[in-house]
Amino acid sequence: MILVPITYKGGVFRHDEILDLIEDVGGYIIQKHMIAQEVVLQALVPKDDIDTLKKVSRPLAGEVIPAPLVGTEIAVVSMSVEIHHLPHASCDIAEYLRTAGAKTNMVGLARGFGKRIGLLSDEERDIINEHDLAIYLFGNFETCIKEKMPTFRRGIKVPFIVCGGPSKEALKKIIDPPAAGYIGGMGRFMHRTKEPHEIAMLDEIVAEVSRIIDQKRAMIAKDPLSVTPARLMDIILENVPDIHEVTSPVPVVVQMDGLRVKLPYDPFAKEIKNIEVESGIRIVDICDIHPSRMRDYILLKVKPFSETGMLV
């Protein structure tokens, strides 16, 4: 069954019918936002049932939009949390990626500024590595990006995209070994992105992120995961009642190859490890469970089929 990432936008009225339909056809709701009278759902729906969903949502004035980044967690790395880098461009990019379905986290580095003095701490490195992809937001000068790049890529295992003021070609030229993706003309700026060419640039970022995510999906497909992270999310939501007490808007974050459960590690990890996914198969049999460096959350990474010999 091929699951397609989509965003559903519609009114609150009878939206429970949409929720039921997605669950009935075997889809998963990754995020649900209720904004005033509007409901925004980010979901994974079986490819064959997209038309049914569109048909059912039509009388409710609902809209089904493909959202390529649903089910991914992306780190938007800002060089600092000073006025120089926030809210533009960091927030603009993070927010735009959310419209494409991604769960974005802003990682504001403590000492990221400066070409010689810029640093990446081990905690920051580990947090970035917990994501599916990282976007580095650098400044406007080639000299600085070139000099600070080795510091910022040390120990980073996830693919990363470099955003900077110089053109894409210039970035490609100065970064060696190459990064996963490049966005030129998007360095430091202090105004809101609202002009058409700036929006086009944000679209370009979404396209670049989608391209890399698709590559990663293709890699995963070669050695499939023992369980779909979205299914694992449903199992945890069903079996751990405390997760419903979490006030965070997304208590369980779906990643491409795992989950972030926003419960403290010590009291809950054991309970989660022993949950049965199917008869005789517990979560611990098909996942690596670690304490996350982000607060004291729990991080689950699903083992591939080649390691477990199981497809649940």
Partner: peptide
């Protein structure tokens, strides 16, 4: 003015925004 013309142009926009703000 900058030794890197592209960066200089981008900084011109930053300066203009900050002064106006």
């Amino acid at each position: 003015d900058s030794t890197e013309p592209v960066g200089g142009q981008l900084y011109r926009r930053i300066a203009s925004t900050v002064i106006t703000d």
